[in-house]
Design a protein around this nucleic acid. Structure first.
Lengths: 231, 231
DNA sequence: TGCAAACGTTGAGCCCGATCAAATTGTCAA
DNA sequence: TTGACAATTTGATCGGGCTCAACGTTTGCA
């Protein structure tokens, strides 16, 4: 792996108070990896030796429950920190993280975490915000599961995906990586059958267009109405 | 309010690397408040001016959703930090926090947060662990709502309450503050009717003993079986 | 090229838990 | 002590979404 260009990360607010030397030094301490589609970046309960920055691609973060069920915690896209176990006071990773397309990640040993956090307030603040957002999102999902119909939950999940990882196309917003009905049902706590039926119905109404492992949102507006239980 | 005894907090791991002077100085910067039962410690969306340590009592942390529904995020008991908005990169509180019994809280202005966190690694680590635990708990609840029956969710909620805030009695574990069926249904995403029926059934089987706003667990063992769907 | 496995669609039936309704009991304030 | 209200219990009914089942389609691998 040739030397990495610090400009890869210099634009991120998290690195605002790294000067040029610090950036070079920090990037120099990292190891760059390619992770092929469907391979793990790291695994649940594994000793957390490194934390990572996703430079390119998309990963799925999932937890396997004691009973064997799988929930999809979230999808992460380029620019996000992943595997930040040390920020949560953990020595093992809490979840599986799997590349859904070929990915590029930059990893650092957890041993340098404490030094980085204490030396660079912008980094510490960025991590705090990241975790705060994840916590809020988790509570949003709890509230959804508690109070909303399956239709609304699926609509919300699609909207979240579109916001986090969507790519604009001619006709609407395309979710830019392969995602199956089973994945959607794991995100919304329902069955793939119901997801399939729901998407079929939406497709007839022109709200989405979907194919195998591919979903495009044609009318975000109507999807928002459904999510708010107004349609 | 007379001067506070630093020994109130010196035993907590979070303050492990505060020396005696630092403890005195830190406690000295705080303001002690009594919060009467059913009064807010702070309110959702309010400007976060302070963070708090709950010295005595129990508080309910709840979020009001845009649609007006209420979810109970958790109950916190003595020794826990609450209102730590700055750790999440927020300037407002994300939730209502309400005393369920008369409480004593110690509050510090958020302006000193950054200094404390950077100066005392044990504090920063403790905060990280706290947030990590909350995130994990949120994901546990998402998984429960996605995969478990109502009975199991209620059993899990009771077990969580017992772990976090239970007090041992002769016959079992008493949940040490007033909690209504409505509260339990807000925690589990069901209706108070179902909670009522379920508790009545359990009472007949000798698993719990309950009265108005009061629940005692007689057989934690059988409750665990129900939570795991083995009974 | 052909096969097997994964993915997606659709239908029928039914159960769990929500909704509507109403009586009862316990608690607090006057 | 008593009235008023909040909390709880219980019954009856209804419907959304899960389960079970079968079939069609695409992908990837040999």
């Amino acid at each position: 792996m040739a030397s990495l260009d610090p400009s890869l990360i210099s634009g991120m607010p998290m690195f605002a108070d790294f000067d040029q030397n610090a950036l070079v030094a920090f990037v120099g301490k990292g190891h760059c990896h390619l992770v092929a589609k469907n391979h793990h970046v790291f695994s649940q309960d594994e000793e957390a030796h490194s934390f990572f920055l996703l430079l390119d691609g998309y990963v799925r973060v999932e937890q396997v429950r004691p009973g064997g069920e799988v929930i999809i915690v979230r999808y992460a896209s380029a620019g996000e920190l992943i595997g930040i176990a040390p920020a949560l006071g953990r020595t093992t990773y809490p979840a599986n993280t799997i590349a859904v397309v070929d990915c590029v990640v930059l990893g650092w040993p957890c041993s340098i975490w404490r030094d980085i956090v204490s030396r660079y307030p912008s980094f510490a603040a960025g991590v705090g915000q990241t975790i705060g957002a994840r916590l809020q999102e988790a509570h949003d999902r709890i509230a959804e599961m508690a109070t909303e119909q399956v239709q609304q939950r699926i609509a919300n999940a699609l909207l979240r995906l579109a916001n986090q990882t969507g790519r604009k196309t001619e006709d609407g917003i395309l979710i830019d990586f392969p995602i199956s009905r089973q994945d959607l049902s794991d995100m919304t706590g329902t069955t793939l059958h119901t997801v399939s039926r729901t998407l079929s119905a939406w497709e007839k109404q022109g709200i989405v267009r979907s194919a195998r492992k591919r979903i495009e949102i044609l009318s975000g507006h109507r999807l928002v109405l459904i999510a708010d239980n107004r349609a």
